[in-house]
């Protein structure tokens, strides 16, 4: 069976500096694929390039359909959910409005699922998203991706800057979500990766330097240190 997402020769330039040098990776039909690497390796740019949010060259296939030339909104409508690194919730909109905006097409829209995972979002429905805490904003950002029947979620550093208690909560949600939909996850928190990731792809200076099962990478302390600079 071919991969769900098949990225090859993905290249991104900003002005004179090149961020990605022909990245190639695949995401399986099931489970969590972790995209790892040091700061500035090009993880966030890879996600944005897949979505067409930055100008790029290369080839991107989703379930055997070439989506490279499509505009961002059309790519997303093929069944992608995106939770960006900085959450990018709409600060002046209420929590409910943020979710309503994300509800695509005629549905079905799984408000029940979202409110079940994040009861707080229901209670705070009328609150402006800009006045939420970082953790609550992350709930909105992930909630947006769970609202629709997506084929793949792109989740960028969901635990960045969150309190430990909230990290656990977010990890639980992602683990639950991963049972239903595959996730391409960018994450620095290796404990979280260990817990939920099935596959690992490591980027270094805009190129893929390692691909394996997540367990193979993370059980090899030397390799982990070499590639990620941490044990």
């Amino acid at each position: 069976m071919t991969a769900l997402l098949d990225v090859s020769e993905l290249t991104v330039r900003f002005g004179s500096s090149q961020i990605l040098h022909g990245v190639g990776l695949t995401v399986a039909h099931q489970g969590v694929t972790a995209l790892l690497g040091r700061n500035g390796a090009g993880k966030t740019t890879t996600l944005k390039a897949v979505l067409g949010l930055v100008p790029r060259t290369g080839r991107i296939r989703l379930a055997d359909e070439d989506i490279t030339a499509l505009p961002t909104h059309a790519i997303v409508r093929r069944g992608l959910g995106y939770a960006p690194e900085d959450r990018n919730v709409f600060a002046s909109l209420t929590v409910t409005e943020n979710l309503e905006l994300a509800a695509r097409g005629s549905g079905p829209h799984h408000y029940d699922l979202v409110y079940d995972m994040f009861p707080e979002l229901k209670q705070r429905g009328k609150q402006r998203a800009g006045s939420l805490s970082g953790g609550q904003q992350q709930m909105v950002a992930i909630g947006r991706t769970l609202l629709n029947d997506n084929r793949l979620l792109l989740v960028d550093e969901p635990t960045k800057g969150l309190a430990p208690k909230i990290v656990t909560e977010v990890a639980d949600v992602l683990a639950r979500a991963a049972e239903k939909v595959p996730i391409l996850l960018v994450e620095q928190n290796l404990a979280l990766v260990r817990r939920i990731a099935d596959h690992a792809v490591v980027l270094e200076q805009g190129s893929v330097v390692h691909t394996s099962a997540a367990a193979d990478l993370l059980t090899d302390a030397d390799l982990t240190r070499e590639l990620l600079g941490v044990a």
């Binding site: 949010l53 709409f90 600060a91 002046s92 409005e97 695509r104 629709n148």
Partner: peptide
């Protein structure tokens, strides 16, 4: 709703499939 969101962050609106 799309207009208000777009005034804030146009790229994110397109990333929601709009």
């Amino acid at each position: 709703l799309i207009v208000r969101a777009g005034v804030e962050d146009r790229a994110m609106v397109t990333a929601l499939g709009i």
